[in-house]
Design a protein around this nucleic acid. Structure first.
Lengths: 219, 219
DNA sequence: CCTACCGATCGGTAGG
DNA sequence: CCTACCGATCGGTAGG
């Protein structure tokens, strides 16, 4: 009778770190990191249900069974990606390092930093869309608790710096600031390469401009 | 040896009608409509790859093989939904019927009509997100040709009515107007039920307000 | 439109 | 006793 092996089905921590994961040191940590990166690439380009465990194993360069030494299931892999590779890990440092003595300068600086980071990481949007479409946002609450405080802290700086805001609740100002990026990137995906450059070049600057001043000329 | 059945793999028209599909009359048309509605419900809640042909058959109340009398593949069903049930069929009439003698009134009227329609049809966003995530937006070009002209026509009305716009290219104004809805609905999905009502109630009115006037108080 | 299947592939686990 | 896998196969399901 064979002895039962103890499979270390490591549960991904459900509290999220704001700092990126530490550099993997042991062989196991390195393999785990390779798996997460491989799965992330495939999920981003094919979706969650469109990606097989075999495809992840191939992309990571190991056998299918080897995955289960690191993750208990395919969903566990996705959750780990959200927790350890999610786009907000990139966005938060960018937003927190923003500088500006007025609201306008602060917003432009924060938005510029975020766009610079996010444009290099196009997968940020897809991971979130997969979460919304294929998981009905069920993992969002676990992310929310750690993301909300620093975001609100940023929003507070809107009020602290010089420059009057119109009478809009601060949470709405923050929400619409974040929404700006969805607005920009999703319409960018929709128009794709179909449009003349005039509708794309410098578009984000105009988006920020509208966020700050609106489309109407002052009377 | 069974005789080979002639499968009527009806191709969905690749040009899109702006008018909704005609009321189904024949038995076959009714079954087809039932299949599209069933598949749409499942796609919206589980994604494309997360929905099986058997599930669609069950939801529609027929056998698996029966689906293929109406559609050649699962993807064909999705394409037919995009072409005949897609959200823009709802949005375009709303936008075209908008009234207003000034830009501000026109924008508020159009946005109000769109939100009213879209809030009743929460699936509108998910269908588009599925297209973006699971199909990498490959069906968008077929939709674009028919959607772009009426949208630009609407944008032209921005200029025709009284009320000066800031110096922003018209395509950008249109794009950011459309983006407003992604901004609103996606942030709504993200915050879910986690937030106090204060951040949600009347939020869209504020979004429109920011679109028109920006967050900064005039100096 | 159904029953009965196919080639293949699915997510996950067996013993070693 | 642990880790990090392997080749092979489990029970079921995929699109057609």
């Amino acid at each position: 009778m064979p002895a039962k092996r103890s499979l270390s089905k490591q549960k991904t921590s459900l509290t999220m770190a704001i700092t990126p994961p530490a550099e993997p040191t042991t062989k196991g940590e390195r393999t785990r990191a390779v798996l997460l990166d491989a799965a992330k690439r495939l999920f981003v380009s094919q979706g969650f249900h469109g990606t097989s465990m075999r495809a992840i194993a191939d992309e990571a360069g190991l056998a299918l069974g080897g995955i289960y030494n690191h993750f208990g299931s395919k969903e566990d892999i996705f959750v780990a990606i959200l927790a350890e590779r999610h786009p907000f890990l990139i966005v938060l440092p960018a937003i927190q390092s923003a500088q500006g003595a007025t609201v306008e300068v602060l917003v432009r600086d924060a938005a510029g930093r975020m766009i610079a980071e996010l444009s290099q990481n196009q997968e940020f949007l897809n991971l979130l869309l997969i979460e919304l479409v294929e998981f009905e946002a069920k993992h969002i609450p676990m992310m929310f608790d750690t993301l909300f405080p620093p975001l609100m802290e940023f929003a507070q700086r809107f009020q602290a710096v010089h420059g009057p805001l119109r009478e809009i609740p601060l949470p709405i100002i923050l929400r619409s600031f974040i929404g700006l990026f969805f607005s920009y990137f999703i319409t960018d995906l929709l128009i794709g390469n179909l449009l003349p450059a005039e509708m794309k070049s410098g578009a984000f600057d105009y988006f920020i401009d509208i966020y700050l001043h609106g489309i109407l000329a002052g009377e």
